[in-house]
Design a protein around this nucleic acid. Sequence first.
DNA 1: AAAGGCGGCAACCGCTCTTAC
DNA 2: CGTAAGAGCGGTTGCCGCCTT
Length: 265
Amino acid sequence: MLFALSSQSVVHREPRRTGVGNMGRSPCCEKAHTNKGAWTKEEDEKLVSYIKAHGEGCWRSLPKAAGLLRCGKSCRLRWINYLRPDLKRGNFTEEEDELIIKLHGVLGNKWSLIAGRLPGRTDNEIKNYWNTHIKRKLLGRGIDPQTHRPIPQQPETAMVQDMTAAVKAPTEYSSSDEANCGGASQDDVPYIDLNLDLSISLPHHSPKRAQPSQALSSAATSSYSPATICLCRHLGFQGSEACSCRNTAHPNVLRVIRPLEEAQN
DNA sequence: AAAGGCGGCAACCGCTCTTAC
DNA sequence: CGTAAGAGCGGTTGCCGCCTT
């Protein structure tokens, strides 16, 4: 694993004067003696050097061990979203844009799953990018960003064609029979060129746990040994008609078979 | 040049899920 | 089997900085 920290890519803002703790919610953990707001360069250096030396481990105890006055969740977020050495940063490419749109069409607001298909990108980054850029982009195309359906005032068939053309994927994301999981025909799936065989692998740094969600969120950034799990549960329709993983010979294989809307109808 | 508005994004929160005991 | 703890996720907030007036 590389640990070359790109200092130019890391944002250091001055700590917020008012603090985000004034947002009206009760603290989720003991925060009487913890810092909040923007991370300082010194804090970043402490966190990076600690993880360099000890790896990612128990986030709860990490702050104390690393000499940080932060809560574990804050450390985790800072590491995952900004300090991890394998992050891309920088502008999203057109191909990334289109891939995000396609994945969102299938997965909905499952940012961590989407991030899993975009190496070097984080869920938070994608979520922000979606809200600030892609939503507008889709609206400009006459497409509802939430439903991915044409906005009513235009003829639907024309818009569907437009949308399909707009989200035409890069060739490396070609589909496979496996991705269709159960034999959905190409006519059934609007994002047919999207590879939905979301193979999930386990983090090498955390052998004691094998959470699908964890593996998904970090799958894009590390090389793990492959292990696949059923996505239907994550998407809320495990066991429903939409989930035909139960029909497969491998009960632990996880796939998205149909777009969410279709599955929920 | 100053003021106000707006967009971008870092960071927080509560909730949910998974695992260990 | 039930419960607690830890970790991750998605939604939300609010500051910063750029742009417009």
